[in-house]
Design a protein around this nucleic acid. Structure first.
Lengths: 126, 126
DNA sequence: CTGAATCCCTGCCGATACTG
DNA sequence: CAGTATCGGCAGGGATTCAG
């Protein structure tokens, strides 16, 4: 089985949770959905996360995995993801200097999110 | 129960499905994740979907539910969502002209996706 | 009532060049 | 090796105005 649909329980509930934050009438950074979309925002972001879902990676390894991505944007993405609490950066002392990146526990929990995005998009493409 | 975590099955698999489309090294429109993100792209989009998850809505009803959203952007979002196969538009003949919008079956399946986005963002805010 | 046309402003992203 | 600095092009989105 390649990609079975993940077992969501969405049969009954039509909308979103009856959380006060679900009542907003305009986009606000405190809305959980906005928080997640903000973390995923930007071209290349999901691909960087996909790489890190497979384990620890250095800057160069990421650059090799995504050859078209420029240094600047990769650096931007990693800084953004680090600030969002998705990625953890570990400088290696000495020379040549290396920096390892890996997902935080919170970042690893983006796996199911990407899976949900994948599942929906996979059915649309038919 | 306000919002229990949806039952994802993500314990074992570290990455994404072993689908050939998961091997891309740059953002491509054919990637299912990109497809979904493209459908959700744009400010206000998720809020419009949230409204429609609660049922059929007219243009004016949507405008009232999201007062800060301008006509132009609402129109843009609805056109975009319609083209993405998320929304179905029904013109009402006669006067005053009204247009009803509702989610397609595919659009309704975005519920779990938004739920996944919500769940992740809700844990980050702590 | 619904939505298209126009204008402007802002922020993203890519390329290039440069530092610790 | 791992970034930052700077610049330019382009698309997104808000306000306003006009049309079917």
């Amino acid at each position: 089985m390649t990609h079975q649909t993940v077992g969501h329980r969405h049969t009954t509930r039509p909308g979103l949770p009856d959380d006060p934050r679900a009542a907003v009438t305009e986009p606000t950074p405190s809305c959980p959905v906005e928080i997640t979309l903000a973390a995923l925002r930007g071209r290349w972001t999901t691909l960087v996360i996909r790489e890190l879902l497979q384990g620890d990676r250095t800057f160069t390894e990421l650059r090799q995995a995504l050859p078209v991505l420029s240094d600047k944007v990769l650096s931007d993405r990693l800084a953004h993801l680090t600030e969002a609490g998705v990625v953890d950066r570990r400088r290696e002392p000495g020379w040549p200097s290396r920096t390892h990146y890996r997902l935080t526990p919170q970042g690893r929990r983006l796996g199911p999110v990407l899976q949900a995005l994948w599942d929906w998009g996979a059915t649309t493409a038919l």
